[in-house]
Write a protein that binds this DNA or RNA. Structure first.
Lengths: 231, 231
DNA sequence: CGCGGCTTTGATGTTCATCAAGTAAAGTGG
DNA sequence: CCACTTTACTTGATGAACATCAAAGCCGCG
């Protein structure tokens, strides 16, 4: 927590508009005075399975994965979260400790607020509580639906899905550098490293993408979309 | 809604103790005066995908499945819910319409409360709101974790899991009548009807269960547990 | 009776994980 | 800077798990 710093006006942070619409000026001041920003490097663990839940986390920028440790050593990805999503909505209000881990897939900035302060605000300010619930509901809906969706896709469909996720949600470009290794992609979408490579090669041979090491360029976006949807 | 009836004291309903701890006597009276009970027969649709979310549902008794219509006609099961779980927590606070359907797998009794009344209570009574959030958080946690769990199991593991679910959670007995057809079980745990039957037969041949039409008797519970956990 | 849905079993093919083996790239110590 | 080790990447071959297809028996119902 060495690099944590207090900011009261957080330029570029959408936290206020997203949730704090319902807070009074006085309440916002309280939150601002205790919130901290922290930056995590690619690969760093943000929260570990079993750790005590003491804080409420909000993803400001970057990219994270929420996952569980499998028995066989292989991680089980629950979700990949992009900014403007609450990071720790899953268990925060029901559990004492995290049921899962969160790791940064890329350089990631997180806003940290003491959980008890949030709870107190919910109790005192019902509109704020309802706002959090709406966000929470949307968030878990999203996690469940994409997880269901992804679970049913075949390998090609899953690869297409994640390539489009990177292009659309994260890098906003059809050409980008993969933030993770082939092996990590395999874990993200639950397949073997070999098959990730194999399908990358297939897509390359079919002229759907161009590959240059970590760099990916999407050539036939419509075809990728079709594979993602239909696969 | 013909059989809906007003009950103020709902004997045997745990709704009060589960959520209403935080409500004042006056508030409980309001809720009691507007809540309705409704019973659904096996197979009946409780809510349909796309319908407007107007009410807050609580599962009093019975068994339901939450699912989505797949493109290929095959249903996609999101969750099987047993009593004391809130039925409609997924999208209620974030969406205008349901993203999924809910159907009764068995005779099921549901408590129905106008959603706006619940929202008003959350705004007025922060402790009540926090209580709902805890329940919501636990509920979605449960859905996500079991879905992740189930998704990774092989066919035998999934069959073992659902047999134990019926025995432990629902019928509280090692001998019970399946409330659903083989085909529906296949949909529940995402496999083909043929394989459900095949694995039932395997389990029968191995002396793990006895089968007589719809009736199932679990003989080697420990072995079934091992298959469910490890598979 | 005969039709349609549920159940059961067998045969076949597809999808994917696993194993094996080799190449490229990147870090490490001398 | 070069040998050395390790890690990432890539391709092919094999086998296991599972879906699909086909066919037949069973049962309730009009």
């Amino acid at each position: 927590m060495a690099d944590a710093k207090i900011q009261c006006d957080c330029p570029g942070c959408d936290f206020r508009t997203v949730v704090f619409d319902n807070l009074t000026g006085e309440e916002i001041k309280i939150v601002c005075s205790i919130k901290r920003d922290k930056t995590f490097q690619k690969g760093e663990i943000i929260v570990g399975e079993g750790e005590e839940i003491k804080e409420f986390l909000y993803l400001r920028s970057g990219l994270i994965k929420i996952f569980r440790k499998g028995e066989n050593g292989r991680d089980q990805i629950i979700h990949i979260a992009t900014p403007y999503q609450f990071v720790s909505l899953l268990s925060v209000f029901s559990e004492k400790t995290y049921n899962y881990s969160i790791a940064a897939l890329d350089e990631t900035s997180v806003c940290i607020i003491d959980l008890q302060v949030i709870k107190d605000l919910i109790i005192k300010n019902g509109n704020f509580g309802l706002g959090i619930m709406e966000k929470m509901s949307k968030n878990t809906d999203n996690i469940i639906l994409t997880s269901i969706n992804l679970g049913k896709k075949n390998l090609r469909g899953r690869i297409a899905y994640i390539l489009l996720l990177f292009a659309n949600e994260i890098y906003k470009s059809d050409s980008f550098d993969l933030p993770v290794s082939r092996k990590e992609i395999a874990q993200l979408i639950d397949m073997t490293t070999e098959n990730v490579i194999r399908i990358f090669s297939e897509f390359r041979k079919d002229g759907i993408i161009r590959i240059n090491g970590k760099n990916i360029e999407i050539v036939k976006r419509d075809m990728l979309k079709r594979i993602s949807d239909h696969g």
